[in-house]
Write a protein that binds this DNA or RNA. Structure first.
Lengths: 223, 223
DNA sequence: AAGAGTTTCAAACAGTTGTTTTAAGTTTGC
DNA sequence: GCAAACTTAAAACAACTGTTTGAAACTCTT
């Protein structure tokens, strides 16, 4: 086996974490999968938590850099003008789904990421929040500029829904078995499908929401 | 404390499972929360797995019956004509989000369900597949009838994306903290938001997908 | 080739897991 | 009122968890 112990542990951990979840994956499963000694994890990473962080950091930092780079490119091209929603969606979700198509570890990782997003152990939640802070801020700004007619709160929800669709798109075959046999072998097709769905949802007519009684907030009368 | 031990265990388990996940929730946490003896779980349910199944079955069966009832009502009203996509979406996702708004346990459960869908232990996966089988079949048929212009494979993916958006809509505040402060206290607003997003995505223009090389399948030439 | 620095290894650590056991308590039917 | 059935309780079970230890094995630089 070529790569060093550290990398083998990261690879094995990534694969097992997406399969069994954060808690159910034991160090013994990981070190066995990596053909390493049990103590190797604590030697190289200090603890199980630090190992998990390392698994995420290894690819997540790069992913978010790619997202920002894609956004930078579009904004440079636009020279100050608002981007098209399609471009922003492409920069954020397109990059993600492309990484998910990379059989060389990226696919495994993206499934892990999508899974962890709804299954947040506390330490991982705060860790993700830090890693995402910059990219979220950039994309929020870009979207607000591109869609000034959409209220900010409404947009945040739509962004959230889009993240859900992305997560399921990536987790793919696993959960899809519920719906019946389906072909998820073509990443280009998946990309095209998700993009048109996301943009359809993003640009949908705004829902009519009647003012609510406002429980804990002070009630405001219509001006 | 009024209700009997069995119910108290189910309630405590539901609450703790969504909070810590299937594996990280221990029987001792559950029995402590239910103010019951540790052995009570194995006495009333046989095992931890069976308890988890009971937690799901208690509400999931009812949820899917509601979905089918809603669909039946629309179909009776339509008298053989295809339903509007909006009606089908309403029957499937509207019922779910309404249950998620029910503070009386429904909310907790729906979050648990959304979370488990991407975090599938094997035994829970097969269990969910059984529970969903009928409702999935009914809704697939209704959708195919309502949208004959949409290829079946394309639709299945969109259905899958919609499930993702629903899951995130329900998990709400937890994951949303990533995007910044947001108000998820108004279920009616959430319902309206999700519905217009879903229908926007469902009715989006079909993506152009070029025929792929087809790795393991036999290559097919364009006719 | 000697020796400092790094990495691996088997073994053991205390703590926690789900489950079982055995006995005591409670409710029910007659 | 008294068995029979059902429910609760405390204690112990073996198996497994993440982590630590101290010595062996390796890898370099000098």
């Amino acid at each position: 086996m070529e790569p060093d112990t550290r990398s083998r542990i990261l690879d094995a951990a990534e694969k097992l974490l997406v399969q069994h979840g954060l808690d159910a994956t034991t160090l013994r499963m990981i070190t066995t999968g990596a053909q390493a000694n049990l103590a190797a994890v604590n030697y190289h990473f200090g603890s199980k938590e630090s190992l998990i962080e390392a698994v995420f950091r290894r690819r997540l930092t790069w992913l978010n850099e790619q997202r920002i780079a894609a956004l930078d490119a579009f904004e440079a091209e636009a020279r100050g003008a608002p981007l098209k929603p399609r471009q922003i969606v492409e920069a954020f979700f397109g990059v993600a789904i492309r990484m998910a198509a990379d059989k060389n570890g990226g696919q495994t990782f993206m499934r892990l990421l999508g899974r962890t997003y709804t299954e947040p152990t506390d330490f991982v939640r705060t860790f993700l929040a830090e890693e995402y802070a910059e990219v979220i801020a950039r994309f929020k700004a870009a979207f607000f500029k591109a869609l000034p007619d959409v209220p900010q709160e409404e947009f945040l929800w739509r962004f959230h829904f889009m993240m859900g669709a992305l997560s399921y798109a990536i987790s793919g075959a696993d959960a899809l078995r519920l719906l019946g046999p389906i072909d998820d072998s073509d990443p280009d097709a998946l990309y095209a499908r998700l993009m048109s769905f996301l943009i359809g949802g993003l640009r949908a007519p705004l829902p009519e929401i009647q003012a609510k009684p406002a429980k804990k907030q002070r009630a405001r009368r219509a001006a």
